[in-house]
């Protein structure tokens, strides 16, 4: 029997892309984990934190910590939300030692989904099959704050039928950036179109990432450009068979 994991599916997945959460649960169960979904969960607080509303972010963070305090591992289909909890909660509770301790304790057990597979349970072949040419988008916070780079690629490498074609701008931001995407819509739009060009140059049918927020930005722009490329979360790829 594998470890007990609590899913934090993130608000984006819960409300907009539930299939990503379901796929993640499928993969984790397939490799023998006992999967739990604490139903009181909502959001990690990042939107408020990134918009400069620290007090509001703190309120939501406290809620998150209370919900997940008992969990052994908290697995998250997002590098950005993982980093919010494991890195930025410390800043949020800088002046509240008691909450800081709690944030650190929970933060050390929060793991981004691909990292959970490659580093915690150390499973790279989950028995997936997907006949497709894909390209991988490095989401910024996973790449730069969590150093997630080779793990997702190794996982993709073990998917039968799948060919990974790297794009020339894999590490360049898609331009999402949370509220940035709507506050600075035209700049953000320019950024994602540059990224889309890079994706299209690969000839891949699918863009894969480990963050649904980036994928929302990418799919939105691909759809707007009527480009014949779709997006898939890594969990969805790994759940395919």
């Amino acid at each position: 029997m594998g470890p007990r994991v609590a899913l934090f599916v993130t608000c984006i997945v819960d409300q907009l892309f539930p299939r990503v959460g379901l796929a993640m649960a499928d993969v984790l169960e397939r490799i023998g984990c006992e999967v739990d979904f604490p139903e009181a969960q909502t959001c990690c607080g990042q939107p408020a934190f990134n918009s400069g509303y620290r007090a509001e972010a703190r309120d939501v963070a406290r809620h998150f910590l209370s919900v997940f305090e008992q969990a052994e591992y908290i697995v998250v289909p997002s590098g950005s939300c993982t980093s919010m909890i494991s890195h930025h909660y410390a800043e949020l509770f800088r002046k509240e030692p008691e909450w800081l301790d709690r944030a650190r304790a929970v933060g050390s057990r929060v793991v981004e989904f691909s990292t959970f597979l490659t580093e915690v349970v150390k499973v790279e072949d989950v028995g997936a099959r997907l006949d497709a040419v894909v390209t991988y988008h490095d989401s910024c916070h996973a790449l730069r704050e969590l150093s997630v780079k080779s793990g997702p690629r190794r996982l993709l490498g073990r998917v039968r039928g799948l060919t990974l074609k790297e794009m020339d701008r894999a590490e360049e931001c898609c331009g999402f950036g949370g509220t940035f995407s709507v506050k600075f819509a035209e700049t953000s739009g320019g950024m994602v179109r540059t990224k889309v060009d890079s994706i299209l140059r690969t000839g891949a049918e699918i863009v894969v990432s480990i963050d649904s927020s980036c994928l929302m930005q990418l799919q939105g722009a691909l759809a707007r450009a009527n480009a014949p490329v779709r997006t898939m979360h890594l969990a969805e790829v790994l759940a395919s068979r």
Binding site: S188, G189, V192
Partner: peptide, 18 residues
């Protein structure tokens, strides 16, 4: 702001928790 640049995903008719 969103729609000025890209298409918008529909909220899922059933959320993950449902």
């Amino acid at each position: 702001g969103w729609l000025s640049q890209r298409d918008l995903p529909r909220p899922a008719s059933k959320s993950f928790r449902q």
